[in-house]
């Protein structure tokens, strides 16, 4: 029975995520796209929960569902020109080729996925306990240097983003 419940839950959230993602790229209204993006992020977070990744799910909600989604909405707001919201997210001329390329990629992935026998693993019942402790253990031992570098990267990105968005005044 647990299988069926787990399967149904997965199905619901997976469909939610994929549908939201589809709507992100298919909606003609960029604001709808942004909102569906947030929904998709939440769907991914729920998938993390299903994979016992509690910490990552929290981070996903906070960073993606909160910060990134809001930033994107802000970006949309700042660049939107009045009166064209309905047509604010058009496809380019290459849309058909893009679709073909994406489809080809998907077929490739599917081929890899289904032809690889090592990956046919079903869930076992032994779920993981809370992951925060082990993540922190890894981050502070083995991945300490990348961790620090990531901090520096974020700082630099922030400074760069501020400078870019603010614009450089002509010194002369």
């Amino acid at each position: 029975m647990g299988d069926i419940v787990g399967g149904l839950v997965f199905l619901v959230f997976a469909l939610l995520t994929v549908f939201s993602a589809f709507m992100v790229v298919s909606s003609k209204n960029i604001i709808h796209s942004a909102l569906f993006l947030a929904l998709s992020f939440v769907g991914v977070a729920s998938l993390y929960v299903l994979m016992d990744a509690d910490f990552l799910a929290a981070v996903q909600i906070l960073v993606y569902g909160g910060a990134v989604a809001i930033m994107v909405v802000f970006g949309v707001m700042l660049t939107l020109r009045a009166g064209k919201v309905q047509e604010s997210n058009p496809d380019s001329r290459n849309a058909v080729f893009g679709a073909i390329a994406a489809l080809l990629t998907f077929v490739t992935f599917a081929l890899v996925l289904f032809s690889n026998e090592n990956w046919r693993v079903l869930a076992d019942q032994s779920g993981m306990p809370s992951t925060v402790g082990d993540i922190s253990w890894l981050l502070l031992t083995k991945f300490m240097v990348p961790f620090e570098v990531a901090a520096v990267l974020l700082t630099i990105a922030m400074i760069g983003a501020i400078i870019l968005a603010k614009g450089v005044e002509d010194s002369k």
């Binding site: 994929v18 993602a21 992100v24 949309v76 058009p90 893009g98 679709a99 994406a102 992935f109 996925l113």
Partner: peptide, 19 residues
């Protein structure tokens, strides 16, 4: 994979840079 390919399609086909 589906998520990735939707994203890929969006990167290839959307006019709007924010999209």
């Amino acid at each position: 994979a589906m998520l990735f390919c939707f994203g890929l399609y969006g990167v290839f086909s959307k006019k709007n840079a924010i999209a």
